[in-house]
Design a protein around this nucleic acid. Structure first.
Lengths: 174, 174
DNA sequence: TCGTTCATGTAAGACGTTACATGATTGT
DNA sequence: ACAATCATGTAACGTCTTACATGAACGA
């Protein structure tokens, strides 16, 4: 159900087409809830059928601009206030850690080094994003900034952990 | 494909039945890759069909003990060394942050307070888990300990971020 | 004997990914 | 003219969740 609310949430800032939402996603919500083009168009159709959004305008090339309905806003608010988020825990990179014992020590270290590198990179990308974004005084901006801070802290923690983990696994003497 | 490798990985430590794996999961891999009973039994059947594991013993009540085959171990090693993990980013709790502007400030603060509380709790649970686990000198233990450290650092970061976020949103005067 | 734990499975439906498909409009 | 971008959609397949279904064996 999360994608549904991600779309309602974006539309709470104003009308937009599927294509618009697709691009907005890319540099905001994609970092917390990735979705494909395919999924988004399908979901928008379902939301319109359910009366939570409606086509408020049509443009060239079949463009359909959607607007959040009062029912949609109610639904979004109910989601935020009456339900609690599911803990998300799936982490493939961390799953692999458990099984590093089945490969040679140097390869296990290489894996951890890769994690460290990816964390570094992810951290830098977020810093760049912070500079690149046009921080307006919209709700999405204000709260998006708070979410971005989260990402920066997490990627920094990832990086430090990876460094620590490498220390726990010194190279074998040979 | 991750569940598949989670099961191969557990079986790399020795033979086990679906039921055994189910319980081992609960206090280890469930924290990084949750799976239901239903999913696990289905996957075990598929792995056996693919020749990556095989039934090595039968017990009472239809119990089937599976053993990793050489092909299964190869597959597990290939996964660890020749493929790279997908970044996992889905985070429903964080997604909600973006939309806190659609509810009153005090409710937004209540949401953040809830996140802080859940982080605290998650952190404490991991500390407890650390004390409760019988840390042997198996591979799974050694690397599991490293994964647990990750969880502890992340939950601590979560907690600190939630505290910071609350400071960014002072109560409205009224 | 009777409740709990052990033990495995199937089915329906939701959600997500990948690939395919089509075509209009704009800018150079 | 032609390339890039705008714009929307469908189909097949894989994964995950929820619920249902069944029954043997163990221990008090």
């Amino acid at each position: 159900m999360s994608l549904r609310y991600a779309l309602l949430g974006l539309l709470s800032e104003g009308p937009a087409s599927g294509y618009d939402l697709l691009r907005t996603f890319k540099d905001s919500l994609a970092n917390v809830w990735p979705a494909t083009q395919s999924q988004m168009y399908t979901e928008l159709t379902k939301l319109a059928d359910a009366g939570l959004i409606e086509v408020s305008d049509q443009g060239p090339r079949g463009r359909k601009e959607y607007t959040l309905t009062p029912a949609g806003l109610d639904d979004l608010r109910a989601w935020l206030t009456t339900t609690s988020p599911k803990r998300n825990v799936r982490n493939e990179a961390l799953l692999r850690i458990f099984f590093l014992g089945v490969i040679p020590r140097d390869q296990a270290r290489a894996y951890l080094a890769g994690m460290q590198e990816r964390s570094d990179q992810a951290h830098e990308e977020l810093i760049e994003l912070e500079h690149a974004v046009d921080w307006t005084d919209s709700n999405l901006s204000r709260y998006g900034r708070i979410a971005l801070e989260y990402g920066e802290r997490i990627t920094a923690t990832n990086r430090e952990w990876a460094r620590w983990a490498l220390e726990q696994l010194p190279p074998e003497e040979g």
